[in-house]
Design a protein around this nucleic acid. Sequence first.
DNA 1: CGATACATGTAACCGGTTACATGATTTT
DNA 2: AAAATCATGTAACCGGTTACATGTATCG
Lengths: 187, 187
Amino acid sequence: MSSKATPSMLGRALLALIHRSPSSGYDLRKLFAESHLHHFSSSPGAIYPALQRLENDALIQGTVEQIDTLRPRRVYRITPRGLAALRAWLECRVTREDVVSNIKDLTLRFACMGGHLDDAATLRFLDGIVTELAPFVAELEEFARTGTGDLPVHGRLAVKSGLAQYRSFLEWAREARNHFQEGETGG
Amino acid sequence: MSSKATPSMLGRALLALIHRSPSSGYDLRKLFAESHLHHFSSSPGAIYPALQRLENDALIQGTVEQIDTLRPRRVYRITPRGLAALRAWLECRVTREDVVSNIKDLTLRFACMGGHLDDAATLRFLDGIVTELAPFVAELEEFARTGTGDLPVHGRLAVKSGLAQYRSFLEWAREARNHFQEGETGG
DNA sequence: CGATACATGTAACCGGTTACATGATTTT
DNA sequence: AAAATCATGTAACCGGTTACATGTATCG
């Protein structure tokens, strides 16, 4: 049935985790609840429907294990289709939209690349962030310098807060890029 | 009817803007579309229903102007109830939850304080951020130092990215606090 | 025997996204 | 006359939140 192209952010996170190792809904809930990966809900009302959607789209495949033991677990594994979707998500070009509005998503993407994409792909990703984010930060800086004259103090400071966040992410991307370049120079 | 306590983030933003100056839905859409305040949608499907909810809760009051001119505008004004709700939102204590998960919301709150709360209240707010955020950042730093040994490189770097964001916001809050303290010393 | 952990789900609600729908006014 | 802008809305859809519902296994 439904061949929806793009799962939600939660769906993508689940897909990546299931790819790393086959898991049940309960496993994944525990992961979210215990880990320092906040901004993900561990509520069953979010996770189980998300898993069902992924299975409807044939990105994962659930099989019930331990039927005899009266404590059955529905364990999900990624499908070839799911692997393709995951790869497409991880490898797609970074846009300005992404760096302006989806920093959480980018961080998630980065975390999911580990052990899946090679260092060259990671480098392309980080380069993409720097390429898109640097001019935006420059624009914001320009705006903070010249465009906030009519704004009240609170407004000016609020702009500075946003700017600081973006700048910090840009710096992180540059450092991470350097990190991966060092490991890559040998080709 | 419905006396819902807390409007959504969009609702709160609209409430604050309407408080600043009475506005129509169209005015507000333009504001969101043009301003550097991203992370707010200017789509009519978001704004008009949000305004209706605010009016249902008697936080704002709409009156049609220019009925004769064949181009009527529904202009909203804040009500006493709305003013109370706005004040309650702006003045409520900053929690750990807030600094961990709702940084956008805190920034919005700060921006909305301008010209509405006095500097003492702003100081309390910024102090609250520092008080709640500093220990959390310390914990995260501790975790980044000692707890990420089993994580792959990507995971470690992703944690660092989050940490950098929080640290940046904490620094901003400290600087802003200093800014307001200087202006307040004469009290 | 009661609490906690294991394990999976559903249902109502809420609010944002996207797209559609309508029609007047001003500008080119 | 066409295009852009003013101005307001609705309807379908999607997905997260909250709360509810169910039952077993294990530990103290």
